[in-house]
Simulated scan of single mutants.
Amino acid sequence: MRILMLSWEYPPRIVGGISRHVYFLSRALTLEGCEVHVVTLDFPGKPIYEVEDGVHIHRIHVEIGASNFYMWVALFNHFFEKRIGYIVYNFGRPDIVHSHDWLTALSGISAKHMLRVPLVATFHSTERGRSQGLTTPESYMIDSIEWWLSYEASIILTVSSHMRDELIHWFRLPEDKVYVIYNGVDPSVFDIKVDRDSIRGRLGVKPWEKLIVSVGRMSYQKGFHILLQAMSIVIRKHPEAKLILVGDGYMRGELERQASDLGLSEYVIFTGFVDDDNLKAILRSADIMVVSSLYEPFGIVALEGMASGLPIVVSATGGLKEIVEHEVDGLWAYPGDPNSLASCIERLLEDQDLASKLRWNAIVKAKRFDWRNIAKKVLEAYGEAGRRARFQ
């Protein structure tokens, strides 16, 4: 089976969870005997075309300047379409077009009709959920594109039951059109030996301090502002606690100001973007992971923390509740509640038996989310998409 995979982000371009999802899924599909072509955006220092672990990667340069983000999205979809034509000419017509989120909807829908092949769409989130409602003309436009993609796709894949319910309700979709296939993780990638003291030293963390890590795009939905409020409570009892925030985004400056205003400058470290190797080293050197999201369809970073052997605190929202079982392999905090979040962090700092139990159970849980099994489920969905495909 020849698969055309469309994603605006792909390693080393990592903005959110889509990048890792497409990376590992593509490799797992290749191991199942598929020919996978990923069409994505270019990245400095990376070739326009390469084959890596059997996956054909086509990186697209947007050759025209754009006046704003939305024009840029339309333009890169145009250049995606040009590359799709190249792929068809040189490799043959694909059997499936698989589009990830609204950003590649335009090229995915065009490819479906130009090539007369089934379209599968994975929804990793929705504009309504990310923005906590539709409040601007741009958010209404994105919501409309998402509806259009949900209409054109023969099968929709999503990453949690919570997300499935949201899609069916909001876009009025037939229940049998939406499949839940969880994200995965490769535990062996995180089972590495690191020099904890050296890594913590580079971060400015002393040997006796407790390192709390949180990873993600710095946007409102990720709840970092709630975590900072919680941290201001934690340090009253635990001045040995340090928080490291890994990632970047439009809220970073605001979060840095908030940390300063809360008197947390010496307790909080902002790393900005870090590459995968450094992220793994940080996770292996930390003591606790916190995922404080207000909206989280899945939360692949939580799985990565569990695979790294970290006791984890998550907001009891969305897909996080489906990954983490409270007081079995993690702790739940009330979403948006800094006191609840602080209480969970304090429990892990004070109860080493609890932290140890959650750590080992989390490692066992992470092994269930195997990408090879996920790829097999995706192939079943592709087969169903082929049976259902209709063209106007």
Rank of each mutant, 00 (worst) to 15 (best):
K177L: 13
S219Y: 05
I282H: 10
V180T: 12
I181S: 03
E240T: 12
D248E: 13
S188A: 14
R217P: 06
S308M: 09
A241S: 08
V234D: 06
H225N: 13
D277K: 14
I192T: 12
V234L: 02
V180L: 10
D165K: 13
D195S: 13
L211G: 10
E254I: 02
Q221M: 13
E266D: 15
I212V: 15
I288C: 08
A259T: 08
I233C: 07
V185E: 11
D287H: 00
V274A: 06
Y182H: 15
D176I: 07
G204Y: 01
T271C: 03
R217H: 12
S232F: 08
D248Y: 04
G272R: 02
D186V: 03
S285H: 01
L279V: 00
E175M: 06
F270M: 11
Q229A: 11
L255T: 14
I192W: 02
G305Y: 02
R252W: 05
L203Y: 04
Y179K: 13
D277Y: 00
G305F: 01
R284C: 09
Y295W: 14
E304D: 03
G184Q: 14
M231N: 11
Q221V: 13
L203P: 02
L243D: 12
S198W: 03
I269G: 05
G204D: 01
A281C: 01
V180G: 01
E209A: 06
L167H: 13
I269L: 14
H169N: 06
I233M: 10
Y295N: 15
P187S: 02
G201W: 02
L283G: 14
V205S: 09
F190Y: 15
P297C: 09
V246I: 15
E209N: 02
G184A: 12
P297M: 02
D276L: 06
S292K: 03
K193G: 12
P311N: 09
K177S: 10
S308K: 03
N278F: 05
P239I: 07
I199L: 13
Y295M: 11
P311L: 09
K237D: 10
Y250K: 15
P239Q: 04
I282Q: 00
A230N: 06
L243K: 11
V274K: 07
V301E: 09
L294M: 11
L310R: 05
F270N: 05
I244M: 06
G223E: 08
I235T: 10
R217C: 03
D186S: 07
E304L: 00
V274I: 12
R236A: 12
M218L: 09
L245I: 15
V194Q: 07
K210H: 01
S214P: 02
M231R: 02
S292A: 14
K222R: 04
I235A: 08
K206T: 04
L279P: 01
S260K: 07
Y179E: 06
V194N: 04
K206M: 14
V290H: 11
V215T: 12
L262G: 09
S188T: 12
V180Y: 01
G309D: 04
G263H: 01
G184D: 13
E254H: 05
D261L: 13
A286V: 00
E296H: 00
S293W: 00
M251N: 11
H238C: 13
V205Y: 05
G299A: 10
M231A: 12
V205M: 03
S219T: 13
V180W: 12
G204R: 00
K280G: 09
V205I: 15
W208K: 02
L173W: 09
G263R: 04
E254D: 08
I199S: 14
